[in-house]
Simulated scan of single mutants.
Amino acid sequence: MTAPGTTYRIGGELDVRRLGFGAMHLRPETAENRTRCVAVARRAVELGVTLIDTAHLYGWGANEDLLAEALHPYPADLVLATKVGIRHTTTGEGWRHAGDPADLRAQVDEALLRLRLDHIDLLQLHRLDPDVPLPDQLGALRDLRAEGKIRHIGLSEVTVDELAAARAVVDIASVQNRYNILDREHEPVLTACEEARIAFLPWRPAAAGQSGGRSADIAAIAKELDATPTQVALAWLLAHSPVIVPIPGTGSVAHLEENVAADAVRLTREQYERLNG
């Protein structure tokens, strides 16, 4: 168990609060939804969130447009992280890998326009493209970094071996894999990130809000701490590793406030060990 710090320095220079915000659930399909989503994004910043994670995939650019509408001009301490490497299709699953260097370059330029930025602090490859050599994909991002369009490069949904191969091409500042107290499949990747001092941004960090219903220990400890099961699940992440930067997402101001308050929840060692088991 580690003593939870309140901030983390991604890539050695991007200081962020360790509880970030995942914007995936901000879906502005209607005017009413758009108003609500703008309010959630603005409330996140009011509550001191300094890392917001988005992606081209989230509404095929609509999520990035929304964040710019809600928050631009951005606070000086706000880090916007976005993801590229996936394109929309009208067949199959509705998306395809898009790791060709020319396509990645185009996606970054599109993201810069939508977010109204001259550079992206943290640009993450949403998925590795199995049809494009890894050095080509990461080499394109490395070139964009050299041009000043990207400050730091991250990966999403990778294995330990893929992370090692990527690091042989370019410095990696973050990894975003699915991980939570009830789903620790990627524990080896987390360990590799700890050893290399790479930020680990777990998506679905609160087990989709189901942690209390699926674990009697989580529910019991939540009662002991006068907290919610979601807050306990997030507090466990913060205590579990100093490189973990959870990015819980929601489309509700109330749930946002619940999530952000989790960094004030302190587990005892006995509670942590119960949860760890």
Rank of each mutant, 00 (worst) to 15 (best):
N177W: 03
P28R: 11
G12Q: 04
L104F: 06
A81G: 14
G59M: 00
E257F: 01
L123T: 01
G12I: 06
T90Y: 13
L51C: 09
D217W: 07
D143I: 00
E258K: 09
H72G: 13
E69C: 08
D109N: 10
E110I: 02
D77V: 13
H186Q: 12
L163Y: 09
D217T: 13
P188F: 10
I10K: 00
G20F: 06
R34C: 05
D103G: 11
P75S: 08
L275A: 11
T2Q: 13
G85R: 06
L267Q: 01
E187Y: 02
Q137N: 08
A264Q: 14
Y58A: 07
R87F: 08
L128M: 13
D263R: 14
D136W: 00
G277T: 15
A140C: 12
E147Q: 15
E273S: 15
S211D: 10
G94R: 02
F200E: 08
G20Y: 00
P130K: 03
I198P: 07
R142L: 02
V243W: 02
R116V: 04
A76E: 08
P130C: 04
L134S: 03
R34A: 14
T82S: 07
A216C: 05
E185G: 14
R18P: 05
G5W: 00
G212M: 12
A227G: 01
T230Q: 11
N259M: 11
V38Y: 14
V260H: 07
T191I: 10
E157I: 06
E93W: 14
L125H: 05
L26A: 09
Y8H: 12
I181C: 06
Y179V: 09
A219C: 01
G212F: 05
R36L: 02
A98R: 04
N33K: 15
A227W: 14
A68M: 02
R204Y: 15
E224F: 12
V260K: 06
V232N: 07
L125P: 05
L104H: 04
I86Q: 02
A227L: 05
T2S: 14
A199Y: 07
H88D: 06
T250R: 03
H119V: 06
L125A: 01
N33T: 13
L57D: 07
N177A: 05
R96M: 13
L117H: 06
G277A: 15
G154M: 10
G148C: 03
T35G: 15
L80S: 10
E162L: 04
T54Q: 04
A206K: 13
A227N: 01
Y74C: 11
P133S: 06
R127A: 08
Q107A: 11
P4T: 01
G213N: 07
R127D: 04
E195Y: 07
R114P: 06
G277I: 14
A264C: 06
F21E: 10
T30P: 12
I153W: 03
E46P: 12
L275S: 05
I244W: 04
R27L: 11
E46S: 14
A227T: 03
R266N: 10
A165Y: 09
N177Q: 12
L234T: 09
L115Q: 03
F21N: 12
P73S: 08
D217E: 14
